[in-house]
Design a protein around this nucleic acid. Sequence first.
DNA 1: ATCGTTTTTGACCGTACGGTCCACAACGTG
DNA 2: CACGTTGTGGACCGTACGGTCAAAAACGAT
Lengths: 187, 187
Amino acid sequence: MVLAIRDEFWDKGYAATSTDDLLRVSGLGKGSLYGAFGDKRSVFLRVLREYDDANLQALRQRLDDAERGIVLVREFLLGPTDDPTGAAARRGCLLANSNAELAVSTPDVAAEARRTYAAITAILAEALERAQREGDLDPAVDAGETARAMLAAQLGIVALGRTGMDRDDLATVARSALARLLPVPTL
Amino acid sequence: MVLAIRDEFWDKGYAATSTDDLLRVSGLGKGSLYGAFGDKRSVFLRVLREYDDANLQALRQRLDDAERGIVLVREFLLGPTDDPTGAAARRGCLLANSNAELAVSTPDVAAEARRTYAAITAILAEALERAQREGDLDPAVDAGETARAMLAAQLGIVALGRTGMDRDDLATVARSALARLLPVPTL
DNA sequence: ATCGTTTTTGACCGTACGGTCCACAACGTG
DNA sequence: CACGTTGTGGACCGTACGGTCAAAAACGAT
């Protein structure tokens, strides 16, 4: 239910999504929605925060579950190009979309984006350090700086995905970025 | 005048900018604006297209004027972090913002973004090839693929800029991406 | 079964939206 | 100066917006 609302914001953006849209996709009555969440803005911020938290938690989990740190790093860059239909790529990232639309008018969104991106960078750096310990990455590489560059590259790939760029082209971009950002010692 | 309108869309986004906003910042009357441009959507698409064309033209010009191809490439990645106040970075890119907000609902915008990014990639590749001829870049590097990776990195940097990320942090990201994407033979 | 509490519903409100239209002003032409 | 033409302004329109609220339904405790 909150997922349907999230999808609506995701596709249409914040301003272009009407309260009636939210009622329609959620099946709720007007009073229920307002009673439960407050106004439209609060609904949105809550949905966005849940989305971010879930993504961060999933990323952390994937790192913990990964047999090697380097695997997560690869997934992180190539993941946006995974969906065979390209629908996921065309959708982009709710946080990135929201920040692009609202950063100037709604500082909360920008702050949320900063917080989330900082957390992602930290997880990436951790994965890279682990990759160094596991012999999959040159120990001379600065993990923190590489993590930042990889975040930027991934954001760019996601942005390109939302343009509807051809899936193979997008995959080429991702592979190209990965190859240049990760000097692999043994492959 | 059209610049004032552009700035309004740039800061607020498309949907959150009202026709009254456009009248206010342009100084035009309602009839004049609608007579000259048609509806709000047309105003926006026209402004966006002019913005893109101007940017492309400027990039091409900077390449032609640059004493070395490598200089343009560096500028391209580091440019978004140039403004000392950080205001330009916080604003991001009108095209990137618009695509993030409207790609799903307005295919014209997504198509415009694809077209523009393809053109930028071509110019970047040209600059990289020139850099190779000028001895500033390893000739073994694939210029086209590097150009794609650099576009992604720059889009990411611009996106991070719009989060309001600290200017020095942003510059670090840009330098880090540049250092990894451009293996410089002699420096 | 009764009653107090909580939830849900959708009618309703004021407002601001995008867009139309026409009276009028400014301007070029003779 | 007279006159057609073009461009301008803002009153005006229907609509859909975000948000409120009272009535009723659903529920739970006794």
